[in-house]
Design a protein around this nucleic acid. Structure first.
Lengths: 238, 238
DNA sequence: CGTTATTTTTTGTCATACCAAAAGGCAGAA
DNA sequence: TTCTGCCTTTTGGTATGACAAAAAATAACG
């Protein structure tokens, strides 16, 4: 056995730079929205080559700590739940391409949202109920407008994600809608389908009103299962 | 809402390379476990500079499509749920450092696992029950062995993630344990705490046996809330 | 003062070079 | 032969310099 290499030590210069910038972004030395220093500035400040700088910046971009459009200065983004969800977007996008990927992701969503419906029935306060009611009415009023129905549909569901008051949840919801909207949007949205979905929303709402978690979960599952069937009818290959 | 970067057209050479390799990994031209070609080979094959090649490889690494240890050839990793969870690891790690981050993440876990316990009570088959029983007994037998108790604890919970037969869930569980283990492991694990946790596991198990989803969820929540209290006692700052 | 033309930066890319570590080959020992 | 340690080659990590094109900054203009 070769002398035990206890720790893989090969530290790359780029990794150090990454750590430096991560710290600076954390402690506010680099404010949110502020552009990163120019590459050449960084080169002079830290005494590394531009190669290393570019590598570090690219990595930061992949981590979602900076937003880098092709020919522009990278802009610092404070680490938040939204940014995190965005950063994992490309990873999830790939998962949707593997066989059964969409189904698996959608099942996770069903599971989470069922739990949320249950939680809403148990813990929704007056504001949440009011928000649900508003969203529901907007949704029902948009039955004949495909695009608007899509948006109000999302808005209704998003209220469920607000109830537990955990900032991770709205971020997750934004992720879901973004990732699945590709499959969602190109579906034909006939008014009768919209009507059916609006009715399902009302069923969920009423179960929450009645503080009946079992009914709320059941209604939510029925709704999303039906939605899945609609998706499946549209795309034969999933 | 900035949903669409419809036209961000300045295509960088590295992006093309990334797409090429993504396709090759997808269609099997590059098999799982196989090393990527050497950087200089790629340079000659695609007629780009090494700068571009490095950038592309780094990006692939950040996306979790290849595993790149510092001085070694990057190895292709088939896109799967485990790889995806790994890829988002660094992002989540950062979330754990923001104020309340650990609490928020842990709450999400409680919510999911409560739903899983519920699902297990409703849908666990004979094999799942057997696996739970085995895991539970192993856990109870390890009360006096800190390390072993930790492992069997995880094993017990992981059965819950297997029940819905959705490959995303075990991956998520692996993520949870990895991300939270830092806080978890350095906790003092006295046998009395272990005993308490083991009792909680048994309560969950019995509720599942009785096919009582409400009891299963309640037991699970009690267990994880207690676990959180233990964490909180150890770390004053969260 | 606002708009446009011009100059200066800055990014994206390429080419080349060097070093140290990994990989591979090779000869000698067991 | 097989194993072992040494040596050469290959390869990744980094540095430097250069150049085109795009962005930012500045000057010129109406």
């Amino acid at each position: 056995m070769p002398p035990a290499k206890i720790i893989d030590n090969p530290i790359r210069a780029a990794d150090n730079l990454i750590l430096v910038f991560e710290r600076q972004i954390m402690d506010g030395t680099l404010q949110d929205g502020e552009p990163l220093p120019t590459e050449r500035e960084i080169v002079q400040t830290y005494g590394v080559s531009r190669t290393v700088v570019r590598e570090a910046v690219l990595a930061l971009s992949n981590k979602g700590l900076v937003e880098a459009r092709p020919r522009f200065r990278p802009v610092v983004r404070k680490p938040g739940y939204d940014a995190a969800i965005d950063a994992v977007g490309s990873v999830v996008a790939r998962l949707l391409t593997v066989p059964g990927g969409v189904r698996n992701l959608f099942d996770i969503r069903i599971m989470m949202e069922a739990a949320l419906a249950r939680g809403a029935a148990l813990h929704a306060n007056r504001d949440h109920i009011a928000a649900l009611k508003t969203a529901l009415e907007a949704n029902e009023a948009a039955i004949d407008d495909s695009q608007l129905f899509f948006e109000t549909d999302i808005a209704f569901h998003s209220v469920l994600y607000d109830v537990p008051n955990n900032p991770v949840l709205p971020a997750i919801h934004k992720g879901y809608t973004g990732w699945l909207s590709n499959h969602w949007m190109q579906m034909p949205r006939q008014p009768d389908r919209n009507r059916k979905n609006a009715r399902a929303h009302r069923a969920i709402f009423e179960a929450i009103l009645l503080r009946d978690p079992d009914a709320a979960e059941a209604a939510l599952r029925t709704h999303l299962d039906a939605a899945w069937s609609q998706v499946r009818e549209t795309f034969n290959d999933l």
